[in-house]
């Protein structure tokens, strides 16, 4: 173990652990990339792939991201971009949940869809893509519908849940389970030129309020479909919220929803009532040192 910890230190260039040295450590000590990245971050060494993060995310915060476990519910339009961004951000564990296979009508917008993987499971494509771009990230693919029956098991040990579903009834089930399990949830939904994002922390019922008028069926996405850019915009806002929840930084979209219109380029903010009781999240304990600025 001592050898392992001193090995990368000798390889440091400019305080950064280069990818080739990470690979050498993997080979030399028979570990996987995740184990090497975890040990490096614990020693205060930053893998060089994150060097452009380092003035906004400290090494201690990078470790916080590495130790987090994010559940992405739905691996389609929103989910594909969310998984890509989480992997590049350096989130250590991603639980990717989706029952579907890729079909031709997904190709206009779903980042993970290619002509070569039509007919293949979306969660398998997610696993393959993440292994290609950041092998230190562990993906747990779950090819199944998310529902009340399996929800508690699937979300066990999860730091933050991201709602990338395409059905309002499933979103409401997810919100209910997150409320019961006290897990923060970042909600996003899209339709045509339009989308919205909101974050709910344990004790909040914002998502339930957003859909309080809903009776059945789909929204405007049924008529309009979704283009390439709307999922990318909303997914990126969701990942920014996840990053802030994990690090305990910034102002979250809590008790408010951003409603985005990309046709008129307008963003509206809608206020939702505060919770009956205020729950501090994340707790102020064990907060890592922040990067300068």
């Amino acid at each position: 173990m001592t050898k392992l910890l001193t090995f990368p230190v000798k390889q440091l260039t400019g305080g950064l652990l280069a990818w080739t040295d990470q690979c050498a450590a993997v080979e030399r000590f028979g570990l996987n990339h995740a184990a090497v990245e975890g040990l490096a971050l614990e020693k205060g060494l930053l893998p060089a792939r994150y060097q452009r993060n380092q003035h906004m995310i400290s090494v201690a915060e990078q470790l916080q991201l590495f130790r987090s476990r994010i559940a992405v519910i739905g691996c389609g339009g929103l989910g594909g971009y969310i998984i890509e961004e989480l992997a590049r951000l350096g989130v250590g564990n991603i639980v990717a949940i989706d029952p579907d296979i890729f079909e031709e009508h997904n190709l206009n917008r779903q980042l993970l869809a290619t002509p070569h993987n039509l007919g293949q499971a979306k969660v398998e494509a997610a696993l393959k893509r993440v292994n290609e771009i950041n092998p230190s990230v562990t993906v747990i693919p779950v090819r199944d519908f998310f529902c009340t029956a399996n929800g508690r098991e699937l979300l066990s040990g999860v730091t933050v849940v991201v709602d990338a579903l395409d059905s309002i009834s499933s979103r409401l089930e997810l919100a209910e389970i997150c409320t019961q399990m006290q897990i923060p949830m970042v909600h996003g939904a899209i339709g045509g030129w339009y989308g919205h994002v909101a974050t709910q922390l344990p004790g909040d019922t914002t998502v339930q309020s957003i859909y309080r008028n809903w009776v059945e069926g789909k929204g405007i996405e049924k008529e309009l479909g979704n283009p390439a850019f709307t999922p990318a915009v909303v997914a990126s806002l969701q990942v920014a919220e996840i990053c802030k929840i994990v690090l305990g930084r910034g102002e979250l979209l809590r008790h408010r929803k951003l409603s985005i219109d990309l046709l008129e380029m307008e963003i509206q903010e809608i206020s939702y009532d505060g919770p009956a009781k205020v729950i501090c999240f994340p707790s102020c304990e064990n907060k890592p040192e922040r990067a300068a600025k």
Binding site: G77, L78, D163, I168, G195, N213, W214, K218, I220, I270
Partner: peptide
């Protein structure tokens, strides 16, 4: 009064 349509896609 502001009215927004239902949006639920992903």
């Amino acid at each position: 009064l502001s009215l927004f349509p239902l949006v639920g896609g992903g």
